[in-house]
Design a binder for these strands. Structure first.
Length: 599
DNA sequence: GCCTCATCGA
C-alpha cells in the first residue's frame, strides 16, 4: 500500500512539474525514474498475481528493458539501478519481471511521448513569441510553422505563409509541407481548396506524391463519395509528367470507406486479401480494417479467425489492432474476453490507450458492472498515465445514470466542467432524464439551467426529458408550458414530445385537451405514430368510452403504420372490464390474424 | 517526413 502511495505521489509530482513548465529536463527524468522504480517494486513485491501470467522465460528481456530505460533516462542513474535485486528464480510468474518490465516500458514510453509533445509545444510557443521577427526566419522555420499551423487547423494563416514564401521569398516549400496543408483542408471538408492546391502543385511544383493523392482521396471519401475516390485512383498524377502509383495506404483508405458505408464489394475483399497475403508485415492495417468490419457486421467467428491469422504472421501487433479486437468483444458484450485481451496487450508491452480504456469502461457499463468501470476510471487509468477524455466521462455518466446513480453522474459532470470539458447536450440530457426518473424536479431544472449557463442549448431531447418528468408527476400545466415554449422559441417539438403530452392529458382524463394537442400536431404537419393513437385509445378507455376508443383504433388500422400489441391489449382489457367478452375475443382474433399475416 | 486501421450515442 505504501508503495502504491509512493508511486502515486511521484506520478502526481511528475504531472505538477510537467504542467508548471518550469521544470528542468533532469527533474522530469528523475520523476519518470521514480515512477518506474516504484512500479517495478510494486509488481515485484505485490502479493496478488497482478497479471495472471505464467510466463517467466528468462532474464534477457529484463536486462533489455533495463538498458532501454537507462539509455533513455541517462547513465546518471546507473549505480542506483545496479543495486536492484535480481529477479527471483522459479517464481512461476507470480512476480514476473518480464511482465513488470513490459508494463514499465509502457509507462516510460508514454511519459517520453508526453515529454516530446511538451518540448514541441514549448518550441512553438517560443516561435510565437518572436512572431514579429518571423520575416527573418529561414526556410525550415517557415516550413515548420506551416506544418504546425496546418495541424492546428489554422489554415488561413498557413496558406498565407505558403503564398508569401512562394511570391515574396521566391522559394517553394517541399511536398510534405504542401501535404500538411492539403490534409488540413481535407479534414475540415474544404475539398475545393485542397484540389486547388494540388493543381497549383502540378503547375509550379513540387509534384504531388502518393501521400498527396491519398490525403485527397480520404477527403473525397469523407465529404463527397467513394466513386470520386475511385475516379481519382485511375487518374492519379495524370496531369503531371510522372504517373503516381497507388500504394497500400491508397487501398486501405478506399476499403475502409466502403466498410464504413456498409458496402463491401467482392472486388475489395479480393484486393485486400491479395494485398494482405503479399506483404504480411506491412498490412496489419488492412487486416485490422477487415477484422473490424467483420465484428461490426456480427461476423464474430470470422473476425476471431482472422485475428488468429494476424497473430501468426505479424511480428508486431499494434494498439489499434488490439483496440479493434477489444471493441469486437465489447460488441458481443463479452467482458471477460475484453479483459483477457487487455492483459495480453500489457504482457507483450503494448500500453492500452484512451480508446482501450473507453471501450473497456463502456463494456462494463453496458453489463452494469459500474464498480469495475469506476475502478478503471479513477484508479487504473491515472496509474497508467492515461487521462479520461470527454468520451470517458460521457460513458461513465451514462453508465451511472443507467443504474440510477444520477447524483454521482452529476458530480462527474461537474468534474468535467472544472476541467473545462463541456459535453454535448446528450450528456446533460442523460442527467436530466436521470433526475426525472427519480422525480427530482428541482435538480432536473437546475441541470437544464446549468447547461444554458455553459452555453449549451437545450435540444428537443432536453425538453422531452422534462416533459416526461412532469407528465409522470402529473404537473400537466407545466408540461403544456414547456410545449408552448418549444413552439414559440424552439427547438421544435417532435412526435415524441406530442406523444408525451397527449399521454399525460389522457392519463389524467383530459380527453378534450388530449384531442386538442393531437389536432395541433396534425395542423403543424407532424406525423402521429402508433404511440400517438395508443395514448388516445388509452385515454378513452380510462374514461370508459370504449366506442370512441375503437373509433381511434379504426383510424390506426386505416393508417399505414406498423401496429404492435399494445393497442389490442388495452382494448381487450377494457372489454373484459366491461364484461364484453365477445368484443374482447373479437379484438383478440383480429390481433392473431394480424400476427400471422406479419409472419 | 506527409497519407491508412480503433472508442461513447436519448
Amino acid at each position: 500500500m505504501a508503495l502504491l502511495i509512493a508511486i502515486e505521489d511521484s506520478h502526481l509530482l511528475f504531472h505538477r512539474r510537467f504542467s508548471s513548465n518550469l521544470q528542468t529536463l533532469d527533474s522530469i527524468k528523475d520523476c519518470i525514474f521514480q515512477i518506474c522504480k516504484g512500479f517495478f517494486y510494486y509488481c515485484k513485491h505485490s502479493t496478488t498475481n497482478l497479471m495472471d501470467t505464467r510466463i517467466c522465460r528468462d532474464n534477457k528481456l529484463f536486462a533489455y528493458a533495463f538498458n532501454d530505460l537507462i539509455a533513455t533516462i541517462g547513465s546518471k542513474y546507473q549505480p542506483k539501478v545496479d543495486d536492484w535485486p535480481p529477479p527471483v528464480k522459479g517464481s512461476k510468474g507470480r512476480n514476473d519481471p518480464e511482465v513488470a518490465f513490459n508494463m514499465l516500458d509502457c509507462i516510460l514510453k508514454r511519459s517520453l511521448e508526453r515529454l516530446k509533445l511538451m518540448r514541441g509545444t514549448m518550441a512553438w510557443a517560443h516561435k510565437v513569441g518572436q512572431y514579429n521577427s518571423i520575416m527573418k526566419a529561414d526556410y525550415s522555420q517557415h516550413v515548420n510553422t506551416i506544418r504546425n499551423l496546418s495541424l492546428e487547423g489554422k489554415l488561413g494563416v498557413a496558406l498565407w505563409l505558403l503564398n508569401k514564401m512562394i511570391h515574396a521569398d521566391g522559394v517553394i516549400p517541399d511536398v510534405v509541407t504542401h501535404n500538411h496543408l492539403i490534409n488540413g483542408f481535407c479534414k475540415v471538408g474544404e475539398i475545393e481548396k485542397a484540389e486547388w492546391l494540388i493543381r497549383q502543385m502540378t503547375y509550379q511544383g513540387p509534384s504531388p506524391n502518393c501521400a498527396t493523392y491519398n490525403t485527397l482521396m480520404k477527403g473525397y471519401c469523407a465529404f463527397i463519395d467513394i466513386e470520386k475516390a475511385w475516379d481519382l485512383l485511375s487518374t492519379m498524377g495524370d496531369n503531371g509528367d510522372n504517373k503516381v502509383k497507388p500504394n497500400i495506404v491508397t487501398f486501405n483508405i478506399i476499403v475502409h470507406a466502403m466498410c464504413k458505408e456498409g458496402k463491401f464489394y467482392d472486388e475489395a475483399r479480393v484486393l485486400l486479401l491479395r494485398l494482405t497475403d503479399e506483404d504480411s508485415e506491412k498490412n496489419l492495417v488492412s487486416s485490422t480494417i477487415l477484422m473490424d468490419h467483420y465484428f461490426k457486421n456480427g461476423n464474430t467467428k470470422l473476425a476471431l479467425r482472422l485475428w488468429g491469422e494476424i497473430c501468426k504472421r505479424s511480428k508486431e501487433l499494434d494498439v489499434v489492432a488490439y483496440n479493434a479486437l477489444v471493441h469486437g468483444c465489447y460488441l458481443s458484450l463479452d467482458v471477460l474476453l475484453m479483459y483477457k485481451y487487455v492483459i495480453e496487450m500489457l504482457k507483450i508491452g503494448l500500453a492500452p490507450d484512451i480508446f482501450t480504456y473507453n471501450t473497456l469502461i463502456s463494456g462494463l457499463c453496458k453489463v452494469k458492472m459500474i464498480d469495475d468501470a469506476c475502478y478503471l476510471f479513477y484508479i487504473v487509468m491515472s496509474k497508467m498515465g492515461v487521462y479520461p477524455d470527454v468520451i470517458s466521462y460521457s460513458i461513465l455518466i451514462q453508465g451511472l445514470c443507467k443504474v440510477g446513480n444520477v447524483v454521482k453522474a452529476h458530480e462527474l459532470l461537474n468534474c468535467m466542467l472544472e476541467r473545462s470539458m463541456i459535453p454535448k447536450p446528450l450528456i446533460w440530457n442523460t442527467i436530466i432524464h436521470g433526475y426525472g426518473k427519480i422525480g427530482d424536479k428541482q435538480s432536473a431544472f437546475h441541470v437544464r439551467d446549468q447547461m444554458i449557463t455553459y452555453g449549451v442549448s437545450p435540444n428537443v431531447f432536453t425538453y422531452n426529458a422534462l416533459i416526461r418528468m412532469l407528465a409522470k408527476t402529473g404537473e400537466i400545466y407545466e408540461a403544456r408550458m414547456l410545449m408552448k415554449e418549444m413552439l414559440v422559441s424552439g427547438p421544435l417539438p417532435d412526435t415524441v414530445s406530442y406523444n408525451l403530452l397527449i399521454g399525460a392529458e389522457s392519463e389524467y382524463g383530459h380527453l378534450y385537451s388530449a384531442h386538442q394537442v393531437y389536432e395541433d400536431m396534425l395542423k403543424r404537419g407532424f406525423h402521429p405514430d402508433v404511440v400517438t393513437y395508443t395514448q388516445l385509445i388509452k385515454g378513452y378507455c380510462i374514461k370508459g368510452k370504449v366506442s370512441e376508443a375503437e373509433g381511434i383504433f379504426l383510424t390506426l388500422l386505416g393508417s399505414k403504420l406498423v401496429i404492435d400489441h399494445v393497442p389490442f391489449q388495452i382494448l381487450i382489457k377494457q372489454h373484459f372490464k366491461m364484461r364484453n367478452f365477445d368484443s374482447a375475443y373479437g379484438i383478440y382474433e383480429m390481433w392473431e390474424r394480424m400476427e400471422s399475416q406479419g409472419e
